[in-house]
Design a binder for these strands. Structure first.
Lengths: 125, 125
DNA sequence: CTGTATCCACCTTGATACTG
DNA sequence: CAGTATCAAGGTGGATACAG
């Protein structure tokens, strides 16, 4: 990471400014979709199994109904999750990860592993 | 992901609820440190090269001085970055990634790659 | 240059009540 | 069950001015 630049801007003092900027943009793109307080948690949860609204409400710790509703809508708009209404009585709604959303799974898995590995350090400030 | 659970809770309707919860917690831990609108960008930037305050102000697009200052303080408290005052005239301050912060590099690299790969899809909503 | 202090507008959220 | 509407309250960010 950092020394594979072929461009030659006049004088940037630092090398690889372009590569850096590119990475930052790419990560911003992800964060536009997955950022915020809740979205990663929701997607992570759905990566394991489809869930109903009320199940997510319980599993995503601390989220309120209003916010969950909105976040699910956003994620659906971005094609990361799907929403299926089942005409049970009363109706239930199932949210599931899409194929596209599933491509985050790899990422999420790595993050989760990292989180577990570094847990002590993070918690102990 | 999802079928390696050995616990056997009474009846969770879904398997691997425990693993799911664990992953969500782990990711929350990361997000406590790296979440928010700016922190990942700052760390990503510093992964490439140490930077001065004013450099970061330019490179992290849209951030204000007040917020950058605060975020840097947080990241320093969490030992992800270091702060070095150089007694030039006038003084300059250099922020750099720590060894610990550097362990995020792997993660960031993967995220950046993913972002680049999926750029079109994300941008095209 | 590297910040901090203050003021203020905006956004997000939680609680509650309500609909289909 | 699965949301939506409303409102009040707090947090967060930007601009500006200022300090070391």
């Amino acid at each position: 990471m950092g020394n594979t630049v072929t461009t030659k801007k006049p004088a940037d003092a630092k090398p690889s400014t372009a590569a850096c900027t590119l990475s930052m943009k790419a990560i911003q793109d992800i964060m536009d979709v997955l950022g915020g307080k809740w979205r990663i948690s929701i997607v992570t949860c759905l990566c394991f199994s489809p869930r109903r609204f009320s199940e997510l409400l319980k599993m995503v710790d601390g989220i309120s109904g209003k916010v969950l509703s909105r976040e699910l809508k956003d994620l659906e708009m971005n094609k990361l999750i799907s929403r299926t209404v089942k005409d049970t009585q009363p109706i239930t709604v199932e949210y599931a990860i899409t194929d596209y959303g599933n491509s985050f799974k790899e990422l999420i898995q790595i993050m989760a592993e990292w989180g577990v590995k570094h847990r002590k350090k993070i918690i102990g400030h």
